[in-house]
Design a protein around this nucleic acid. Structure first.
Lengths: 146, 146
DNA sequence: CCCAAAAACGTGTATATACACTTATTATTT
DNA sequence: AAATAATAAGTGTATATACACGTTTTTGGG
């Protein structure tokens, strides 16, 4: 197998640490821009995924969002407390269905513009070509554990 | 400004979510390989950063590792409880200095081999060229918030 | 129809992350 | 030397993440 050199810009040789750090940086960047909305980027994402469906079961939502089911279970709490989403039990009495409230829809309108700002700023920061490579890489990496 | 198309592989348009997802996938991959060592990748990283210094203050360590100082403060707890590191107060009585214990050094030997496996597997998964692009991108992104 | 397997969730526990505040100590300025 | 700045840490609080387990229903044979 070929030998890999470690003389890259990043000071850590560990690819895992490097992506974790980059992820933190990008997250902090988005959070700062989203701050006036009162939503975290994860919360914005959750609401956004509810926008186009009437209601959706916990498991289905977790699958769509590609996050752990139990993580979703914790993440919906603050949004419920803020009155942005509602949870009802569906026909199948095992499942619970999540849906946006009117307040949730309103919050999304506000946050959407802010998210767009962050998104555009990042796109300008990377540039079209790097952005393309970036997204392809992320997609490939996400498939690593499947 | 140029219009960016969203017809990439990744199903989410949000770059922040995408890197967070990729980060989770890579993390889970490394964690699984590191599992026999009893160390998380973050913990391995922390120990690793202590390997080449006698002892180091909390702030200096946080800076080197490029993690939040208060995050480091929480992250050292499990390693202290496991007896892998020690914390003493330095000359300056404001500061606390962290150092590896013998158990910590021993744990590192074991974990190092496992980390190497994960690292190699990821490198093979991406290939040399993509890996290079990957690391350059991460480095650039990390600089986003500075 | 009954029972075992599968599906859908929730909880306990533990780690990771980071902002806002506070405290203690050292360094600087007047 | 006293007052003020800056430095080094810790804590409160809140969110995010995910593994291991347990519970409740529903389904699918037999």
């Amino acid at each position: 197998m070929k030998h890999i050199r470690y003389d890259l810009k990043s000071s850590s040789p560990c690819h895992c640490l490097n992506i974790r750090r980059a992820s933190r940086a990008v997250t902090q960047f988005y959070e700062k821009v989203l701050e006036p909305s009162g939503l975290k980027v994860t919360q914005y994402s959750l609401l956004r995924n509810l926008e186009r469906v009437e209601s959706v079961s916990m498991s289905a939502l977790a699958k769509t969002m590609r996050i752990d089911r139990t993580t979703l279970n914790r993440n919906i709490k603050p949004l419920m407390n803020a009155g942005l989403i509602m949870v009802n039990s569906g026909e199948d009495s095992r499942s619970r269905h999540v849906m946006l409230t009117d307040a949730g829809k309103a919050a999304l309108v506000n946050a959407w513009a802010l998210w767009g700002e962050a998104q555009t700023l990042l796109e300008e920061y990377l540039g079209v070509e790097e952005l393309d490579v970036f997204e392809k890489l992320l997609s490939k990496l996400e498939a690593l554990t499947r």
